[in-house]
């Protein structure tokens, strides 16, 4: 008649409640993490070309205003290429950080801070 253990149903309830709380906190984010790496890879080409286009554009514009053709075009072509490299570097840097995020360290802290 006398049993110090909790009865079976009560222990089950305990376990189920704990699991539900864990799901509430964790689940939604996991899906978003997956797509990110792919989207970053897609960006790289356009980042490089766009900076080059802007550099060349500025060069041509300044040359036609100041009559310095073709020197500013050359200068800004180089600057544009450098800016494109910088853009790509930043995308890569961000990709590294995202891969780091996937282990769940940073988002965990953010989430805790927010709630």
């Amino acid at each position: 008649m006398a049993e110090p253990e909790r009865p079976q149903p009560l222990r089950d309830l305990d376990r189920r409640l704990k699991r539900l709380r864990a799901e509430e906190d964790g689940g939604a984010r996991a899906a978003a993490e997956r797509g990110r790496g792919l989207s970053l890879a897609v960006r790289i080409g356009a980042e490089l070309v766009a900076a080059l286009v802007v550099g060349v554009g500025i060069g041509l514009l300044l040359d036609s205003w100041l009559g310095t053709a073709p020197w500013l075009l050359v200068v800004f072509f180089v600057l544009g290429a450098a800016a494109g490299m910088l853009n790509v570097y930043r995308v890569m840097e961000r990709m590294n950080r995202t891969v780091g995020d996937a282990t769940g360290k940073r988002p965990e802290a953010e989430r805790n801070g927010e709630r």
Binding site: P7, L13, L17, R21
Partner: peptide, 16 residues
């Protein structure tokens, strides 16, 4: 719901 389930669980434990 989770809070209530917790309360009921505590209650059940105290009843026990």
């Amino acid at each position: 719901d989770l809070r209530r389930a917790d309360e009921i669980k505590t209650e059940a434990e105290s009843v026990l």
